[in-house]
Design a protein around this nucleic acid. Structure first.
Length: 601
RNA sequence: GGGGGAGUAGUUAAGUUGGUUAUAACGCCGGCCUGUCACGCCGGAGGCCGCGGGUUCAAGUCCCGUCUCUCCCGCCA
């Protein structure tokens, strides 16, 4: 038998998850990788794996001598084609863990289509190699069933989303990737223009303005599964290029947009997980979320609310509290049921943790039987009146055995640190079901906020419409104006952001003015939008889903790198291709670019 | 830009107070084995202890620097 590595006339008949007892006696041709080889001296068993599954093939020298001879040289991840006959496994030899475990294929003819060197790591779900080596050999990593299944989940979800959106009349329309630089918000990736010396394109942070223009163009409903780019530092849930399912629709107010989006994402989630999810999704206003959870993306799978006690302790003798309030800050606390058992070490750890998130410290009180100061075992109970302590106990619902922790300071730091603490406690105390999926809408965001330099900036983006009632505030008290904006939150992660857009040119100009853009700046950055709005722009709005994060949560992964085929490292490099890299002087000359010599060179 | 963790065989890890030839599992190589399925049994090879410097009679271990991976803060309209 000639053992060519090409297929010459061989055609695969089945995937490796397909065969069962009903195929008994059929002659089949299988192709795949060697997951495992068990050589019994005479009989050789090979687990052959393809993208769908695994099937055991048997090499028996008594049946096919040549195939068996070839089998002796076969190693892990060799690529094989096997022609043979399906037969039931002998009594007691059934593998219940395998879809094809009731049968095996007795090989008549075998082809080694390719060999494989000894592997840098084993192709098994349960063996976790380091990330460096995994990313360097991502093609091997992707062979591992666990990683492959994440990618398959992603494909399935996107397919379901496309169907749900197209059923609602959304059209898949492409927008440019070479876009215009509009420095505002996230740092952009820029691309030099060879034909226009000194000019640059930017890669889009989102196709926001193009999709709005598509509404002006009359497409009415648009969607796109689209790459977006932000040149910011990476995180477990942030990559410099990421994918959005980007949607925009005309003739709808906030409610209609949310309904359409919720319907799509709940359908897709249900189809993917087979679980009944909590649609209609609950809604919570931004201010409620901040008040009770300290952040705009609360994980509602567990309680542990933040409790505002600013008023109660404003005039107390405890300087940490009264001082915070006198300087315009707040005092919040969290009641931790059964938290009284925390040791000094636990409390120190929690204190250190809140300090990482901007808090100055963490006050605490263990609750015991009694009233007033007697009910608290706490380093600072002596500074508080009995009535104050009773009031805090009552407001928080604290019972003996509980712990109350306190944060005091600026609004921002206190909320942020207690929000982080809340999440940590939720995890530490096992307060929620990991597999639960809690979608939640956050609504009524502020339209704009002051940044650290006191400059007004759009919270969402500057094309977000204010709530109609709040338009007059733009000129008097813009910080108070609320936006027709809404975020979709899943288990404490922002997985979508949307809004009604401004379709009125004058209103758009007003908003640009309110965030401090001069007419000239507005014109040079967004002139084309203002222009388009003059020509019959319909009311419209939309939302973009963060696909990577959604899939991360739906697969239960801790990092979006696990659901992206070729992710970048924390330094934005690709370990497989070694991007980014230097370009030649000639290329730079063509692009009219000179690179400063770095000191290290 | 800042803080934490990690880097030892192909891989994952152990390595005590600084002290003989740096361990183990899996993988790899060779041999045996007709019913295994993470097969089994016997044998073997495999090390720039990330890199550079320092302290010391002696460094995987201590100190300084540096690189890479990772988590977080800042940043992410």
């Amino acid at each position: 038998m000639e053992n060519s590595t090409s297929l010459v006339g061989w055609k695969r008949s089945h995937h490796l998850n397909e065969l069962n007892i009903s195929h008994n006696n059929q002659t089949v041709i299988l192709m795949g990788w060697v997951q495992n080889r068990r050589d019994h001296g005479n009989l050789i068993f090979i687990d052959l794996r393809d993208r769908e599954g695994q099937t055991q093939i048997v090499l028996d020298p008594a049946y096919a001598e040549e195939a068996h001879k070839l089998g002796e040289g076969i190693r892990s991840e060799f690529v094989l084609a096997a022609k043979g006959q399906v037969r039931p496994r002998p009594e007691g030899m059934i593998n219940e863990n395998l879809a094809t475990g009731k049968i095996e294929v007795l090989v008549k003819e075998l082809k080694i289509l390719n060999a494989c060197e000894s592997l840098p790591f084993q192709i098994q779900s349960q063996i976790e190699a380091g990330e460096t080596i995994r990313l360097k050999h991502r093609y091997l990593d992707l062979r591992r069933p666990s990683v492959k299944s994440n990618i398959m989940t992603r494909i399935k979800f996107v397919k379901a989303m496309r169907k749900a959106l197209e059923d609602q009349g959304f059209l898949d329309i492409e927008t440019p990737t070479l876009y215009k630089s509009t420095p505002e918000g996230a740092r952009e990736f820029v691309v030099p223009s060879r034909i226009n010396p000194g000019d640059f394109y930017a890669l889009p942070q989102s196709p926001q303005l193009f999709k709005q223009v598509l509404m002006v163009a009359g497409f009415e409903r648009y969607y796109q599964v689209v790459k977006c780019f932000r040149d910011e530092d990476l995180r477990a849930d942030r990559q410099p290029e990421f994918t959005q399912i980007d949607c925009e629709m005309s003739w709808e107010e906030a409610e209609g947009i949310m309904q359409a989006m919720e319907s799509a994402v709940s359908q897709a989630t249900t189809e993917l997980t087979g679980k009944n999810i909590n649609s209609p999704f609950p809604k919570m206003t931004y201010s409620e979320a901040m008040e009770n959870y300290g952040c705009d993306k609360p994980d509602t799978r567990f309680d542990l609310h933040l409790i505002n006690i600013s008023k109660i302790v404003a005039s107390s003798d405890f300087k940490v509290f009264s001082g915070a309030i006198n300087t315009g800050g707040i005092v919040n606390c969290i009641r931790i049921p059964k938290g009284g058992q925390f040791t000094r070490k636990d409390l120190d750890e929690l204190t250190e943790f809140v300090q990482l998130h901007g808090a100055k410290g963490m006050a605490w009180a263990k609750i015991q039987e009694g009233e007033g100061a007697d009910s608290w075992q706490s380093p600072f109970s002596k500074f508080l009146l009995d009535t104050v302590i009773d009031e805090i106990n009552q407001l928080s619902g604290a019972e003996p055995g509980d712990l109350i922790v306190f944060g005091a300071g600026s609004y921002k730091n206190t909320k942020a640190s207690l929000a982080a603490l809340r999440l940590k406690l939720g995890e530490k105390l096992n307060l929620y079901d990991e597999h639960q999926l809690n979608y939640l809408w956050i609504t009524d965001f502020p339209l704009m906020e002051k940044d650290e330099r006191g400059k007004m900036a759009a919270l969402h983006h500057p094309f977000t419409a204010p709530r109609p009632d709040d338009i007059p505030l733009l000129e008097t008290d813009p910080e108070k104006a609320l936006a027709s904006a809404f975020d979709l939150v899943l288990n404490g992660n922002e997985v979508g952001g949307g809004s009604v857009r401004i379709h009125d040119q004058e209103l758009q100009k007003k908003v640009f003015r309110a965030i401090g853009l001069t007419e000239e700046e507005a014109e040079s950055k967004f002139g084309f939008l203002l222009e388009a709005l003059k020509f019959g722009a319909p009311p419209h709005g939309g939302l973009a889903f963060g696909l990577d994060r959604l899939i991360m949560i739906l697969t239960g992964e801790k990092s979006i790198r696990e659901v992206i085929t070729f992710p970048k490292t924390n330094k934005g490099t690709c370990l497989m291709t070694n991007a980014p890299n230097k370009v030649t002087g000639e290329e730079l000359r063509d692009l009219h670019i000179r690179v400063h010599k770095l000191e290290s060179e």
